[in-house]
Design a protein around this nucleic acid. Structure first.
Lengths: 172, 172
DNA sequence: ATGAACTTTCAGTATATTTTGAAATATGGC
DNA sequence: GCCATATTTCAAAATATACTGAAAGTTCAT
């Protein structure tokens, strides 16, 4: 039975540690913290509120909020009669997941596919032992990278249907 | 029809650019380059050969080779009558993939599961609007993270069978 | 057109990560 | 035990990344 105090602590811990995790995920600590804060806040927040809550500068808050908007993880909300922009996070975990998946594919898989395809072409018919080995490895890496990219694309198009929820039950 | 010159260039490009990609993958440029070099070299290499090929210091070569050994992506080979250690990379792409998948799950998913489970417990029965929202979000993120971890575990146990190769055909 | 409210940019600073190079430690043959 | 060879460690330097704060730019009501 948790009380208000432990809840507040849990909230702060979540933001702090989600930020630390962000590092492992290839995004900056602050971006992950801003995302964490917005995810657990039912109301929309202004840049100033984010600055104050996380103790970060205006420039930093601004840059990261806009980057999150660029990813599609955060939306801009305009309140009637107010000039300020407010921000709200996408809270549906499956949507968050597909957005992150798409971005990671774009940054991690696509450039690899392109590099490998290029090296594959340039190493055709070299006719030495080293050349053969290189070409073979490029072929296998290339095929696999395309496969992985294809899987990513297929997954990110899936809806989070009851069937998927059932699958989740068996796997978690 | 590629000649020896374009092959050599392709090899160098592969190492250089695979290193740059490593950055996006959360490993250091040098580690990715050492891995690239070993992946495309049929023979085993000594620390000195790696140093020379990549123009890096002994300490750097040593640290990264041992880290790759730690991951299981590189094996130590002892030649008869030689005191030096030699190194060879795992070249099977599916094995490489499952090793990387396991490591990423350990670094990216497991800590998140632990954090989320913790926050979930600590936010039970808070009884405010904010508390409710937080608890609900923790529950959904937690369930999803466990699901993702489970999928990762299942995949890393799969063999790269003909059936999987067929699936790859359709998806690539 | 003015000015207040708000957003954006960016040079400089701070922080974090990676690399070097040399010293310390270990190993094996004699 | 001694020497040569090889491995490991780590403090200092180099590099890469992130953050600040203030100035510049934009928007909108009057």
């Amino acid at each position: 039975m948790a009380n208000l105090e432990t809840f507040r602590e849990a909230k702060d811990d979540f933001i702090a540690q989600w930020g630390a995790l962000g590092t492992n995920w290839g995004i900056s600590r602050t971006m992950a913290q801003v995302h964490a804060l917005l995810m657990i806040t039912p109301e929309v927040l202004s840049t100033d509120q984010v600055m104050e809550d996380l103790h970060i500068s205006r420039g930093n808050a601004h840059t990261n909020l806009k980057e999150l908007v660029g990813w599609g993880l955060v939306r801009i909300v305009i309140k009637k009669g107010e000039r300020k922009e407010f921000f709200e996070a996408e809270k549906d975990v499956w949507k968050i997941f597909t957005i992150v998946l798409r971005e990671r594919k774009r940054r991690e898989i696509d450039p690899a596919v392109s590099l490998l395809g290029d090296c594959l072409k340039r190493s055709a018919d070299v006719g030495t032992k080293e050349g053969e080995a290189f070409h073979k490895q490029m072929k296998e890496l290339s095929d696999f990278a395309k496969f992985a990219g294809g899987v990513g694309d297929k997954i990110s198009l899936l809806q989070y249907t009851p069937a998927l929820k059932l699958a989740a039950k068996f796997l978690s």
